[in-house]
Amino acid sequence: MSKMKAHPRPDMSQVPDNLCPVATIENPMLPGDWRAERPIVDRAKCVKCGICWIFCPVQCIVEKRAWFDVNYDTCKGCGICAVECPHRAIKMIEEVK
């Protein structure tokens, strides 16, 4: 069994309806629209140390070949990455419509 990936969901059709509620669908909510501030990565300054990835509570940091970037669909804009980045490569800017 793979230790890396989630197992496929089991076939629930055999589970009796009146057993107890069993959730089978993953929650599709994406919290990207919570943001008041948006983190911007300065690609020239990023040295790929991975600190932002480690400290991101949402785990929304994605790796690119030469830098780390942010998945704005899930980033809540907490600002931890901007504070913790040792080379100050991440800035928070105001999110505007």
Binding site: L30, P31, V58, C60, C78
Partner: peptide, 11 residues
């Protein structure tokens, strides 16, 4: 899942 409704900056 990616969308957990924890507060921003939740440890």
């Amino acid at each position: 899942v990616p969308g957990l409704s924890a507060c921003q900056g939740c440890n």
